[in-house]
């Protein structure tokens, strides 16, 4: 059964069709890549899946449930988390609080019990705290847990964003250019990291990426967008030899 499926979603901004008839099918535990030249509509596709944009046409299904018209925070509560292309951390919060606050959606207590600190709330808060620390341990940021998140170096900020997304207990993780701005060695590490979190957290991952090495190395299936149109889909080998893809990236004589 497909865990996440988009049914011909189309996004039009006025006269411009950013994405047209996109059909994505994510099987459980897959790592899937979404690639394409700049402006191909990849991030728009992400925004439609996560509820930031309402698709002009088409539907998004999560485990056969229609989530097209749901709000972004509801979609996260169902189990779809994302990271952002231009890092969006909570700058003035510490590294630990960044992860902690992503647990907030699973908090069952209301605000009154958070103020009078009922035993149940305290227990839950402790759980959230421990879980956040474990996550930071896993992504290797435990030594900077009390720093302000904006003071971290770029690579760490990326990892923190992933940790924060993981704290929402997702089933599906959408990564928007996780390797952007990384050097080859860092990208190499990232590949291993992505594969590892997939296994550790039993995730299904959809990622947008420009680093071909990363995409080809880690993805089992790849969708290629160009000007909003899906020009190819298949395994890395098929994509590498697809004439249309080569044309889209390198141009035609």
């Amino acid at each position: 059964m497909a865990i996440l499926r988009t049914d011909n979603i189309t996004m039009k901004f006025g006269g411009l069709t950013a994405v047209s008839n996109l059909k994505i099918n994510l099987e459980e535990n897959q790592i899937v890549g979404l690639i394409g030249p700049n402006g191909a509509g990849k991030t728009t596709a992400f925004n439609m899946i996560t509820g930031v944009y309402l698709p002009t046409e088409g539907k998004v299904f999560y485990k056969d449930m229609d989530i097209t018209r749901k709000k972004p925070h509801e979609i996260t509560q169902f189990g779809i988390a994302r990271t952002f292309q231009n890092i969006r951390l909570f700058k003035e919060l510490t590294v630990l609080d960044n992860v902690f606050v992503a647990n907030h959606l699973r908090l069952k207590s209301n605000w009154v019990s958070s103020v009078i600190k009922t035993p149940r709330y305290i227990t839950k808060e402790k759980e959230m705290h421990i879980k956040s620390l474990e996550l930071l341990e896993k992504v290797g940021l435990i030594h900077v847990k009390d720093e302000d998140s904006y003071s971290l170096p770029y690579g760490m900020q990326r990892r923190l964003e992933i940790a924060r997304a993981l704290a929402t207990d997702p089933k599906v993780l959408l990564l928007d250019e996780p390797a952007a701005g990384m050097n080859p060695q860092e990208s190499q590490d990232l590949m291993g990291f992505i594969a590892r979190i997939r296994d550790d957290f039993n995730l299904t991952i959809l990622m947008i990426e420009h680093h071909m090495q990363v995409v080809m190395g880690v993805c089992e299936k790849i969708y290629v967008l160009d000007y909003g149109i899906t020009i190819a889909e298949g395994n890395p080998f098929e994509i590498q030899n697809n004439q249309k893809v080569i044309e889209a990236y390198l141009g035609v004589d």
Binding site: T76, F84, L89, F90, H104
Partner: peptide, 8 residues
């Protein structure tokens, strides 16, 4: 935007 994406 990030807060909303974190389920808040």
């Amino acid at each position: 935007i990030a807060a909303e994406a974190m389920g808040i």
